[in-house]
Design a protein around this nucleic acid. Structure first.
Length: 160
DNA sequence: GCCAACGTTGGC
DNA sequence: GCCAACGTTGGC
């Protein structure tokens, strides 16, 4: 199947692209997504080797910091059933059914300089991009191949 | 800090 | 099953 492209949001104060680079094996579980649409994408659509932009939100200048690859496809998010986790889902635990999924991601490419949201907005070819739409809160979003290539051209790639 | 947009919840 | 109220996200 053809490779797919994604955008995954994170607040860098919680977990940044640099944190991913520093993680063991440059890999981490992308836990804590508690939205059904995003879950469905991770459960059903993410493929091994797909590429994902890591997007920093909740900061003065939101940005795409780099590219990660999917290192493990969707599996049950263990943090949902862990009462000590901040991502604990008491309702799921009570029912004994964990509805939440996650994937593992590995840092692949760091942008020498992050591509900022205003740079994305200034790029005509990206006018239809989901993350630029007002109120687009989905934390895991599909990105088209054309959008992916355009953003790679905007960036200055460097191997991690 | 403000507030618009969105998803979820719960009363009816 | 509708929809108002609420909580959260996230840009600005």
């Amino acid at each position: 199947m053809a490779k797919k492209y994604w955008l995954m949001k994170t607040e860098p104060s919680v977990f940044s692209f640099e944190d991913l680079v520093k993680a063991p094996g440059k890999t981490t579980a992308w836990e804590g997504v508690r939205n059904y649409q995003a879950r469905n994408l991770m459960r059903d659509e993410f493929q091994l080797g797909d590429l994902a932009f890591i997007y920093h939100s909740g900061i003065a200048e939101p940005e795409i910091a780099g590219i990660a690859e999917i290192a493990k496809t969707g599996y049950a998010d263990p943090f949902a059933m862990d009462s000590k986790s901040k991502y604990y889902d008491a309702d799921a635990k009570k029912k004994g059914v964990n509805p939440w999924f996650l994937v593992d991601v590995r840092a692949k490419k760091r942008f020498k300089k992050s591509v900022t949201r205003s740079e994305l907005k200034n790029c005509k070819a990206l006018a239809g991009m989901m993350v630029l739409r007002k109120g687009a809160r989905l934390s895991v979003q599909p990105v088209t191949e054309a959008e992916f290539k355009t953003i790679c051209e905007l960036s200055d790639l460097e191997n991690v």
